[in-house]
């Protein structure tokens, strides 16, 4: 496989801290990856990239609300370019803090950029930071981020956040997400059954056990679990004898590459 012709941009700002491992995952699959600070992003032409990743961390200390400051800065600096990027069907992935940023910027769950956020990632209902491996079920495998999986497949990926409780502004927004099949991942029990909010399987109290969603067109995705921490088999929490070669997070990055290859 030669994915060298694909280029990914991993953005960072003060407090971002998962950019390096995200780059490692992408490069392992042959994607040319650049980490760029928000301060130098003006020098870049976003349309040179096939994928933009907003990685995890605590951007600007998350002092207002997780992702809020970076979200506004993204709009202030990149709005026009970003709208064009999304319009053209290029891919955007937000992981953890990156998901919070996409929600705060109104990029998700809309179809482009909206003025007011309609979803939020609120404080965990456990009222504390949660670092643990969870089980998530693939709800829709027909998006650029999920093609390498089966529908209903259960993935093991860790979460690490204090603000990951997925909320929608109204029941209608939730229904729309369901209707449009925008819900990609839901927290489930180890056997794949609905978690129905049961802690710690649903680690944060998310509505409808939602762990990740995509935009209406499917080319923007945000998720709280960290696929880059479940990329290699040796990162898994438990293995006997030799570790497997890959973790389930690999499938998300593989889906992206497969999609780009079929699309180009």
């Amino acid at each position: 496989m030669n994915a060298n012709r694909f280029k990914a941009l991993v953005l960072r700002t003060g407090g971002t801290n998962c950019d390096l491992e995200t780059k490692v995952a992408l490069e392992e699959l042959g994607v040319k990856t650049e980490i760029v600070h928000m301060n130098s992003v003006e020098k870049k032409n976003l349309l040179e990239y096939h994928l933009i990743v907003f990685p995890g961390g605590f951007s600007y200390g998350d002092y207002v609300r997780a992702g809020a400051v970076w979200g506004k800065r993204v709009l202030a600096k990149l709005r026009t370019q970003l709208e064009k990027f999304i319009e053209e069907g290029r891919l955007i992935l937000g992981i953890c803090n990156g998901f919070q940023v996409l929600a705060e910027a109104g990029v998700l769950p809309g179809n482009g950029v909206s003025e007011t956020p309609s979803i939020a990632l609120a404080n965990n209902s456990s009222a504390k930071y949660e670092c643990r491996w969870v089980w998530i079920r693939v709800e829709n495998n027909e998006t650029p981020f999920t093609t390498a999986m089966r529908k209903g497949e259960v993935l093991r990926i860790p979460v690490g956040h204090a603000e990951g409780r997925f909320l929608t502004g109204s029941e209608e927004i939730l229904n729309e997400l369901k209707r449009n099949e925008q819900i990609l991942f839901r927290y489930v029990l180890p056997n794949g059954d609905d978690a129905n909010g049961l802690y710690p399987y649903n680690p944060n109290g998310s509505t409808y056990d939602i762990a990740g969603i995509c935009s209406k067109k499917g080319n923007v995705m945000g998720m709280m679990p960290h696929p880059e921490r479940a990329f290699f088999g040796w990162q898994l929490p438990e293995w006997s004898g030799r570790p497997p070669e890959r973790g389930d997070g690999w499938k998300i990055f593989k889906s992206i590459v497969d999609y780009l290859e079929s699309y180009r």
Binding site: E21, K128, Y129, C131, R132, R229, Q235, P237
Partner: peptide
């Protein structure tokens, strides 16, 4: 669990097994 022990993606044996 309130300490992130997975960030950086380099942790092989975790503090709780």
């Amino acid at each position: 669990r309130t300490y992130d022990h997975e960030v950086r993606g380099c942790t092989v044996v975790k503090p709780i097994y």
